[in-house]
């Protein structure tokens, strides 16, 4: 049981991956300075960004840097200390989903994790990469951002 990791994707699907396989994915710690990264560091079909603390939001900015400046094209998943209430931020900053260890998945329960994919707050002022959210500034001005 504890060797299985749940993959909750932005499209609502839930998969299971062996923890040993997850350990083989390319991975960056959330505190990584994007300025120190080269393209070879993110040359992978699947890239993980690890959140090392529940109150540490550096992984969100790192995701934007990897997807923006470094033009990463593969799948980007959040792992580590990330909880359902932070899932909306992860999706807005471009993550494709979150990898959750079985124990953490059980702590919150599948319903709470899945519900977090459809957050009650469905608006954001600035642009958003999340399909479930709308940018207020874009809605007001009709310009793609």
């Amino acid at each position: 049981m504890s060797d299985v990791v749940r993959l909750l994707k932005a499209d609502g699907t839930v998969g299971e991956i062996d923890a040993k396989a997850v350990a083989m994915f390319a991975s960056l710690e959330g505190e990584t300075d994007p300025a120190t990264l080269s393209v070879s560091d993110i040359d992978a079909d699947i890239l993980l960004i690890e959140f090392t603390g529940a109150a540490d939001g550096r992984g969100f900015s790192l995701a934007k840097a990897v997807l923006g400046k470094m033009a990463y094209q593969g799948k980007l998943y959040a792992v580590g200390c990330i909880n359902p209430d932070q899932l909306s931020m992860a999706l807005q900053t471009g993550f494709d989903g979150v990898l959750v260890p079985a124990e953490r998945w059980a702590d919150y329960g599948a319903e709470v994790w899945k519900a977090a994919l459809s957050p009650i707050v469905k608006l954001s002022y600035a642009s958003t990469r999340s399909q479930g959210l709308q940018s207020i500034w874009q809605l007001r001005h009709g310009t793609q951002s």
Partner: peptide, 11 residues
């Protein structure tokens, strides 16, 4: 507006 619920700057 910019800072409200900004996903990068909540933590």
């Amino acid at each position: 507006q910019w800072s409200t619920l900004h996903p990068e700057f909540a933590y």
